[in-house]
Design a protein around this nucleic acid. Structure first.
Length: 634
DNA sequence: TTAGGGTTAG
């Protein structure tokens, strides 16, 4: 291709110089060629053309970035060097040109090229300046390349660049990126001068190392904070699973008058998603509508995730539909969200649309798809997706995918096949995988396999109370009360305590949290009165309390009493009393919904003509007109 | 021509 264009350049040199349309096109071609050569060979062809046509002024428009990039990593370093000197020796310092090339490499797809070029520069005795060091250190940070990083650090000292604060920060960042917390901390402590960037680097690093408390101590000590300082702490709290602290800090940030940017917003929305804090999430959305970054893809992706996890699937769909640009994260979030909300068919439809327009799925997309299949009992479809991910897309299944497959098979009652599947897995099964089998054993009442699953779970995840509870339920279901007692004793012996269940509901911006048997809420009396009223109506419609879910040794009527005070029932009754008729009631729960509450909430939704949306530990249940979106599959 | 932060599975 290039040769033919070179040829046309030769032809052009013989045609009259009168400007015409054809000439302009050939000029464009010439310029294209000058800017688009890809190999040293092509560059040399251009070079020879310049020499042959004696067109020396062309040297001045040779794109230097391209000349250096194309030659730097080939064996033509000498050639590039000589060409740089020819191009414009009076205007440019040679190192500036190499720095520009280093910058492109460090910020490009293969930062290793920056390190290779740097070694060439050293080999040719080209003296680095502060910029050179900074770009190479950036590449070292990206590659966690400690060897070169330390070498450049030593060079910085040797060349006397220690007073350059920019470089000091870059070195600090390099040590942090290489995971050398102690070295980074010592370096930070010894820095003769620090600015807000130095503090931000060390704080961000500590939050990533789960040292959030130490990070907060430094945050409090900072002489001056920037938006990035606030953002680093807020994002740090979200990443280490403390969304409440993240939101508290965001409130302080607003009070301090700092203006959130797109990264702050992503962190805050993620915290809202974790907590189900819809009110704040909505407020952030309103803020976004007035901001320049309201259309940022990552911001929109997190916004979608927030609405999904706060139970507002339709708004999430609207945000998704309105996006100008979508990434695979947008599609995967939406597919997973639909599955979580029991809209499996919609999830699969969205995947077809995505495939049709040529978007390539990733591993997370398949987790969503497999969830969708699992919740709809689409065994063969799930099997097809599982084999397609490797065959068609080269994605190696991870433990999450195996977990989904075991869940799919177990829920459908194919327990033996699920067990075989686990035994044949190329990677070691974890607690989630065996837990999925145990869950299937509960639904399909298979005591023997449940015992096999628990044997593994006691080793893999001995402190997880949920597994003991499920096994105990399985025994209770089979009328094996002695075994139920044995599981409870095992729990006691192992020092495992049942996680107290709680449910929360947000009304007018305040969150009301209820635990089982709650008597602390100011409206307790009214709530229980309303419940008794409701219970009568429910019983008229055939509600029978399912006391087997109560694992305590007590008489039946007492068990009923315990059952009636489950946290989600209290939260729903509170919701009925304190929200306008006809509006949806949104509940968040830390554990899975029990069978009795599930049956009760279906009836309550019908009696009161209310949509009740419950987010439990695993998924959403949307109760409406007496049925649930999970179709009893949970 | 140089420094620091973000999204989906749980």
């Amino acid at each position: 291709m290039v040769s033919s264009v070179i040829c046309s350049l030769h032809i052009q040199s013989s045609v009259p110089a009168t400007p015409n349309k054809k000439n302009t096109n050939i000029e464009t071609l010439r310029t294209d060629l000058l800017y688009n050569f890809k190999t040293p060979f092509e560059l040399k062809q251009i070079h020879s053309h310049i020499i042959k046509t004696n067109n020396n002024e062309k040297y001045s428009i040779l794109p230097l970035n391209r000349v250096t990039s194309v030659c730097a990593l080939s064996c033509d370093f000498d050639y590039a060097k000589s060409l740089i000197q020819r191009v414009s020796p009076s205007h440019y310092d040679e190192i500036v040109i190499w720095n520009s090339c280093l910058k492109n490499f460090a910020e490009g797809d293969n930062p290793i090229h920056a390190l290779l070029l740097f070694s060439q520069l050293r080999l040719y005795d080209i003296r680095p300046d502060t910029f050179t060091c900074s770009f190479v250190l950036k590449a070292c940070s990206l590659l966690s390349h400690l060897v070169t990083g330390s070498l450049v650090h030593a060079l910085v000292e040797k060349l006397g660049f220690q007073s350059d604060l920019f470089l000091q920060n870059t070195i600090l960042h390099m040590y942090a990126s290489c995971g050398l917390t102690h070295v980074a901390q010592r370096f930070f402590d010894k820095m003769p001068r620090r600015d807000v960037v130095s503090w931000n680097i060390i704080i961000t690093h500590l939050t990533k190392q789960d040292q959030i408390q130490l990070a907060h101590v430094l945050f409090d000590q900072m002489p001056k904070r920037s938006v990035r300082s606030w953002t680093a702490m807020i994002a740090g709290y979200v990443q280490c699973g403390r969304p409440k602290e993240a939101i508290r800090l965001f409130t302080l940030m607003e009070e301090a008058g700092a203006k959130p940017n797109e990264v702050t917003v992503v962190a805050v929305l993620a915290a809202c998603a974790d907590l189900g804090a819809l009110d704040l999430g909505r407020r952030v959305h309103e803020y976004l509508n007035k901001c320049s970054f309201g259309r940022n893809v990552r911001v929109c992706n997190t916004l979608i995730d927030m609405y999904i996890k706060c139970g507002c699937l339709e708004i999430a769909q609207k945000v998704f539909a309105g996006m100008e640009e979508r990434t695979i994260v947008s599609w995967s979030t939406m597919i997973g969200g639909l599955a979580m909300h029991g809209q499996g068919e919609e999830a699969l439809k969205l995947f077809s649309i995505m495939s049709r327009i040529g978007i390539r799925p990733n591993g997370v997309t398949f987790v969503g798809l497999l969830h969708a299949c699992s919740h709809m009992g689409l065994i063969n479809e799930g099997r097809r997706f599982f084999s397609s991910m490797t065959r068609d897309y080269g994605i190696i299944p991870q433990i999450e995918h195996y977990g989904c497959m075991v869940d799919l098979l177990s829920r459908s009652g194919l327990l033996q096949e699920a067990h075989e599947f686990i035994k044949n897995m190329p990677i070691k099964a974890n607690g989630v995988v065996w837990g999925a089998l145990l869950g299937g054993c509960k639904v399909h009442k298979n005591v023997e396999l449940a015992e096999e699953a628990i044997k593994h779970l006691l080793v893999l995840d001995p402190l997880n109370d949920g597994y003991y509870v499920v096994l105990s339920n399985i025994y209770a279901d089979a009328g094996r009360w002695e075994d139920t007692a044995r599981v409870r004793k095992l729990m006691r012996d192992q020092g495992v305590k049942k996680t107290p269940g709680w449910s929360s509901i947000s009304v007018d911006g305040s969150v009301h949290e209820f635990v089982a048997g709650d008597a602390t809420h100011p409206q307790t009396e009214e709530i229980y009165e309303k419940w008794q009223e409701l219970l009568k109506q429910m019983k008229l419609r055939g509600y029978v309390p399912d006391t087997k879910v109560v694992l305590l040794d007590m008489e039946e009527d007492k068990k009923e009493h315990v059952l009636y005070r489950h946290s989600e029932k209290l939260a729903v009754v509170f919701g009925l009393m304190n929200t306008p008729p006809g509006t949806p009631i949104r509940i968040m729960k830390n554990l899975r919904v029990c069978e009795d509450c599930h049956a009760a909430l279906k009836l309550i939704s019908d009696i009161n003509n209310r949509e009740i949306i419950v987010r439990d530990r695993n998924r959403f249940h949307c109760f409406k007109n007496g049925s649930c979106s999970c179709r009893e599959y949970w």
